[in-house]
């Protein structure tokens, strides 16, 4: 306790000397973690699961406070992060391809250069599902149905311009067929229409199907290798369609972060990822983890932006 007090006092003294020295003791005040969605959403649950581990591995008695800034499918929150001071005390959650897609279909006050890319934590691959009672339960049958007549296959979506939408556009290219997009507002009605068989197929994420194997036929998973979470489900590449896609969730900070701050944040994320407790907590809350940090994450973002641009140029969704 005493040692803690002295170290705190020392930190305070240092802080008052110069600001550059203070950075070495990052963090010395609370860190705001901005979530662009309301409390209780998937991204929010991820942020709240990560926060305590981040506090532990940042050391220095760090406190990470999750702040929800919901609105405009995450755009309000991510814009706030882009415009915050790059001092390491404001970080935020980040969703791909959504955040990059927004720079194309809306007037966004940020771009790919507005951020320091810290860590992508979740990679939730797409799966194609059909309702259990459906006649279509293999990719071949689906493609046959789709090629028979343009638009014969209806696909439920939770929104336009998201990972599911991009996947569909790639699917459309790969199978040389036109699909009818049925964009619901949000995942609840989309899922309901899918389970009830009101649409032919749905593109959802791995985490949404794990507990519902009895309710859906899973036609394939958009990863390079089969997933342990979904045993017995073939990848699309196995079935002859080169489709790898998914929803990515991670953490970013405003661009221009001091190097030592950036590296201590990235290190904390790396340590968090290696913690078996963290892995378990994420799995339980339905988040398939896959870590990409720093430059790797930035490259991933560039790749996603390029894909989004390609899709936007060939078949804009609005």
């Amino acid at each position: 306790m005493n040692a803690k007090l002295t170290s705190l006092a020392a930190a305070l003294c240092l802080a008052s000397v110069t600001s550059t020295q203070a950075l070495a003791d990052y963090p010395e005040k609370k860190i705001d973690l901005i979530v662009g969605y309301a409390a209780g959403g998937g991204t929010d649950v991820m942020a709240r699961t990560v926060a305590p581990f981040l506090e532990e591995y940042l050391g220095n008695d760090a406190t990470v406070v999750v702040k929800n800034m919901p609105g405009a499918s995450g755009q309000i929150g991510v814009t706030a992060v882009a415009q915050a001071d790059p001092d390491g005390y404001t970080i935020g959650t980040y969703n791909l391809p959504g955040m990059m897609a927004r720079t194309l279909d809306r007037d966004a006050d940020y771009s790919a250069d507005s951020f320091s890319y810290l860590a992508n934590v979740v990679n939730d691959p797409n799966v194609i599902v059909t309702p259990k009672g459906s006649d279509i339960d293999t990719m071949d049958e689906l493609v046959d149905a789709a090629q028979e007549r343009d638009g014969a296959v209806t696909v439920s979506m939770s929104s336009l311009g998201g990972d599911d939408h991009f996947f569909l556009i790639r699917l459309s290219e790969a199978t040389d067929a036109e699909y009818t997009i049925v964009p619901f507002s949000g995942s609840a009605p989309a899922r309901s229409a899918l389970m009830g068989g009101h649409v032919t197929m749905g593109i959802i994420n791995l985490s949404e199907v794990v507990n519902f194997r009895d309710e859906f036929n899973v036609l394939g998973i958009a990863t390079e290798e089969r997933s342990d979470l979904l045993k017995g489900v073939p990848t699309f590449s196995e079935q002859g369609y080169d489709l790898i896609n998914g929803s990515l969730r991670g953490f970013i900070a405003p661009a221009g972060l001091p190097e030592d701050v950036e590296s201590s944040l990235i290190t904390a994320f790396e340590k968090t990822y290696e913690d078996p407790e963290f892995q378990e907590a994420m799995l339980k809350s339905g988040n398939p983890v896959n870590l990409t940090t720093g430059e790797g994450f930035e490259a991933l973002n560039a790749e996603q932006l390029e894909l989004a641009e390609r899709v936007w140029n060939t078949s804009p969704w609005k």
Binding site: A38, G40, D44, R48, F212, K284, S285
Partner: peptide
Amino acid sequence: LGIPGTAVAAVMLGGLLIHGLQ
């Protein structure tokens, strides 16, 4: 089914998820 009937139920689902209850 994982389909919340109202907005409150949707938030409650998030509450369940936080406790690892899918």
